[in-house]
Design a protein around this nucleic acid. Structure first.
Lengths: 226, 226
DNA sequence: TAGACAAACTAACGATCGCTCTTTGGCACA
DNA sequence: TGTGCCAAAGAGCGATCGTTAGTTTGTCTA
């Protein structure tokens, strides 16, 4: 009997790439545990057993996704950390954190919700990378406080708060939503800076991108005439 | 042959209560999908089949937990919403959101991470309750902006941000940590108010609980003399 | 003391899981 | 035109899952 065998490849993507991309979708939609290899295989258009020509295990597939996105994020943000002014540096970190979390929402969401599904060594590796990343924000807060630009806030709590607020973008952002990713990133960077700015260090205005800059006079005037 | 049969009850808790409490722990630690009824049963000290004298299904057990915590949260916060001053009202909402999310971290964490594991009707119900809750924060923001107390920020994004930051407390808070839950709640309420306060409406100081109130002079002086 | 009832037990069903192993098809290259 | 090899198919293993059914036990009540 003639057997229909999958031939050739989708344009520009290897089977391994397809598997990774389909797994990403399914892990994002249904979670790692609820996603079966049979589901992934059928969406790629191959049989379950054939998956193992490309992956070593289901768990390793998850780990690859999570490690890749963390390494990419760290690399992106190390670029921003070269800005000399501490306030601007913090603004850039927040801004690009939001951008990254919107652009790569699925991977990031998985990275934040599937730590439990990793084995001990895998989890240790990811946790190390995450600590390293959190450290970047804590360092900027400490710098800013030392320079008198930021209020002497609790560094750990503030970093957690900033990261939580901006990371959450990955769970609701849609490219077809009311606001562009750039607008969202601007709004959140402004909010963060206002939340930690030390009034004794002068005006924050020059660092803001939306409320308080171009539109500042209009907005404040509107509020005052109420 | 004599069979050892589970007799009596743990002090003060019914079997149904024990099941719920054990399920809570396991769903929190390993997630819903990764938790088996055999695991729950063995921790309660009964056989798998016996569970069904107390639950209707595994999924219903999850839904019960998620609905209960949302209803309790809504009830708690409706109390706070009676405060007449809008700034203080917002502060109380944030403060009690943090307290609730620390006190009932496990339930809340499950509520935020297991939406995917519910069926269609269950999910619709929980989503409705969550929308209702988010609405409380959006309403306060609108009120505050209308009164000129808050900057004319994007209401939806700001509400999302506030809720994300404060909800995240449930994933790291420990009663044995460096800060008490009350301190954490104070710090975050202050941060939120600073982030949305309209300078044209005067001083924020009287509404703050930590930075900017008792310790304000010292902190600002320290920053200024740098 | 008999009977009703709640709640435990045991056993097993059917489905599905991740994964392994063997076989087979078809393309690149000699 | 042959040949080697990669990647597919396909069958199936052993374990485990949620759930159901039937039975047994202990206790409270009439």
């Amino acid at each position: 009997m003639a057997v229909t065998r999958r031939r050739g490849r989708a344009a520009g993507e290897s089977t391994a790439g397809e598997i990774r991309s389909v797994a990403l979708d399914q892990f994002y939609k249904h979670g790692f545990q609820a996603t079966t290899l049979r589901d992934i295989a059928s969406r790629v258009g191959i049989q379950v057993g054939s998956l193992y020509n490309h992956i070593t295990s289901k768990g390793e597939l998850l780990f690859d996704i999570m490690e890749t996105v963390m390494l990419d994020l760290l690399e992106d943000q190390r670029q921003q950390a070269q800005e000399p002014d501490v306030v601007e540096r913090m603004r850039l970190l927040v801004y690009h954190h939001v951008r990254f979390h919107g652009d790569r929402a699925k991977e990031v969401f998985i990275g934040n919700s599937e730590l439990r599904s990793l084995n001990r060594q895998q989890r240790a590796r990811i946790v190390t990378l995450r600590h390293e990343y959190e450290g970047m924000f804590q360092k900027e807060l400490e710098d800013g406080i030392r320079q008198g630009k930021f209020l002497p806030v609790d560094v750990q709590l503030t970093a957690y708060g900033i990261l939580a607020m901006t990371t959450w973008v990955s769970s609701w952002y849609s490219p077809r939503g009311r606001l562009s990713l750039e607008e969202i990133a601007d709004i959140y960077s402004d909010m963060v800076l206002r939340g930690i700015w030390n009034p004794a260090a002068g005006q924050l205005q020059t660092h803001l991108r939306r409320v308080g800059r171009d539109s500042a006079k209009r907005l404040l005037a509107a509020a005052a005439t109420k």
